[in-house]
Amino acid sequence: MMTTLVAARVSLSPSRVGAVINRNVGALRSGPAYWVVLISGFFEPLLYLLSIGVGVGALVGDLTVDGHTMSYAAFVAPAMLAVSAMSGALAETTFNFFFKLKYMKTFEAVLATPVRPFEIALGELVWAVVRGSVYTAIFLGFMVALGLSSVAGALAAFPATVLVGLAFGAVGMWVSTLMRGWQDFDLMGTGQFAMFLFSGTFSPVQNYPVGVEVLIQLTPLYHAVELVRGLCTGIVGPGLLVNAAYLVVMTVGGLWLASRRVEKMLCE
């Protein structure tokens, strides 16, 4: 669906996008260094799930949201899954993308070929989501094993995590084209952490004052958590469409802005 949307804007060559992905597959073989950056993105949400979801959950007991009662761990787990999808894609489209853009001059070399800026952006994003999805799939396996999600719920949530990865990956890519240097990544990390704590991850957003609740509802991770949680738990309502639409807009907008920035930076 997204590809057709985008293809309407620019003529796009799947083989060139594939070649951009192919480069990253080749780079995987270069050794463990490439993997390290993504490991934290996977383990952090899992550790939070175990410590807070299961540990603190034992003190909290069950939780009732919109008339549905569930264990605290079952409430937290989908949120951690969404966070995992976000971090997985972001690690690739921020640190790695920035490095290729600014220091390795990878994209400069690629742009001398028929490949276009948009095809680079799309290829890098697809790659980021493919990698991130390996982690979300493992995470879903943990959830099913711990009884925090049904198999059906996990299968329904998986495509949603792909959308979450696309959305955050695309916007993250755009943001990394605006970065002046590594120090700016600290700022981004802080923003990411704030969203991580407050986006309905550890407690329902209705617990906050109305002003704060509305503010949270404007930020992206909230929509990612709502969508993934809804599909995991099977508590489905029309609101999920709004969440999904928000993420689609992020994906398309982020990609478009990122490729425009790359073009502006490298094709001046």
Partner: peptide
């Protein structure tokens, strides 16, 4: 062939 080599060190 650009002025500065931009070979890919990951490959």
């Amino acid at each position: 062939c650009p002025q500065l080599d931009n070979l890919d060190p990951d490959l």
